[in-house]
Design a protein around this nucleic acid. Structure first.
Lengths: 254, 254
DNA sequence: GCAAAAGTGTTTGACCTACACCCATGT
DNA sequence: ACATGGGTGTAGGTCAAACACTTTTGC
């Protein structure tokens, strides 16, 4: 709370005015696509993790910083999604309320009640590596199933929707998985990830053939033991080829 | 120039601070992909058309306004490209010079020498419908061949490069042409557009089959007469199907 | 009639789809 | 042994690439 006060008082001069960032952070666990959400104080609503850009800071770097602070992960897959610039997207009444409830008066923190333009980002992270951290403006920070997202503040539902649409689009011409899965994974796990993203079932055999066809995964001699039934092979991603595929895209087109 | 003075003096209060827009405007004429560029005063460099967002204006709407003012075209194909947020992208020395040369003193127009974050847009327009308009900060406004782009200010070359990459990517899963071509066009013209965007030759027969296969174009009974050689058929786009394809994408993937 | 551009069709191979059988493991 | 999940192979259809011939038109 000491920090929050500093943030309010120093924010006006420290940050690029009228500009915020919001991140849709996707994770994957036990067959479910998850999203990292914050529960706001004084509010029943949830919010995407976000923040502001320091006056001398690169915008993308600010997004990476915010993600790092929140999840503890460094080399994060993070991409710009869209700029949300509706003049009515901000809820200045809500922000004023919060400031009042926290005891700020006569214009302290006024900069927060301006109209804000936000740059939406989306990130793919390895669920198992994330160490969640709450900050001074939220009381809860947790993963929520994509299938049961609560009500979100402002236009955050719209940002989330846009991120999911983007992810579903990108999966068609970019490799996905390296950032969402642990280093070693099984083919059924990878398929389950695709199914979670796309929201539909895929054929096991065709999925495997296609994946192997891309040449992005290496089969290990190990298998995942311990589960019931036949032990599936473990795979790793071929980082070089994966990187290359990210740049060049997967299927040619023209 | 009277306008320019107003712009400088009133800009601080009228616009969202530290935020600009820049547009890569693609046109197509005589087999060449063209880009609309401005020649700046006091400078050998060229620039992308751009502008600022009024405090109560939607960001995308501002981009549309800027394009409309510049090209006279209303229903423009305009999409967000990327946010360029490097703190060093602005060239505040250059801006200060311009202000001084125009006789602004003691801090008038200081707001322009701040660090700016720009939202890049790209637009596809019908070359034949554009009526160019220069404004008070530029002396020339003209189409330049993509193959011979002059030096650009700040990071505008980077924005242009990003736009071209995006266009080449999008052409793989979106219909392109409705916005770049006149209402009636021939198949070789459409192919020539694709070749200009992709920078390589395509096979006539396969191109035509694929295009017709999408069902986005209607063949007219008319042909384009007057040219030497056999007269090619004219086509129009099927607006409904085109629109639908824009939303749903062209080839399935998963 | 000849050169140049435009219209059309066929063959080939790759890939995607749909589907069935065998194997390994825990209960 | 059996139920469940995982590994693999095959036949059929679709689509895209590669390629050649015919038609029209201006000179």
């Amino acid at each position: 709370m000491e920090n929050f006060k500093e943030f309010i008082i120093e924010g006006r001069d420290a940050f690029v005015p009228c500009l915020s960032l919001d991140c849709v952070i996707f994770g994957f666990h036990s067959g479910q696509l998850k999203i990292l959400l914050l529960k706001m104080r004084y509010d029943e609503l949830w919010a995407l993790p976000g923040g502001f850009v320091y006056k001398d800071e690169d915008v993308d770097a600010a997004a990476a910083r915010i993600l790092r602070e929140r999840t503890g992960i460094k080399d994060i897959f993070l991409q710009q999604l869209h700029v949300f610039g509706d003049p009515n997207r901000s809820d200045s009444k809500r922000n004023k309320n919060i400031l009042e409830k926290d005891g700020f008066e006569n214009g302290q923190g006024d900069w927060l009640t301006e109209r804000f333009i936000t740059v939406g980002y989306y990130a793919l992270v390895d669920f198992s590596k994330v160490e969640l951290a709450i900050d001074y403006s939220s009381e809860i920070c947790e993963w929520q199933d994509l299938t049961s997202i609560p009500s979100l503040i402002m236009d955050h539902s719209c940002i989330l929707k846009t991120a999911l649409e983007r992810l579903r689009k990108e999966i068609n011409y970019q490799p996905i998985g390296l950032n969402l899965l642990p280093a070693k994974f099984t083919m059924p796990e990878l398929q389950s990830l695709y199914e979670a993203i796309l929201g539909k079932k895929l054929d096991r055999r065709n999925f495997q053939r296609r994946m192997l066809g891309y040449g992005l995964v290496n089969r290990l001699t190990e298998t995942r033991k311990g589960g019931a039934h036949k032990a599936p092979y473990l795979y790793t991603f071929n980082n070089e080829k994966y990187k290359q595929a990210l740049e060049e895209g997967l299927q040619g087109g023209w």
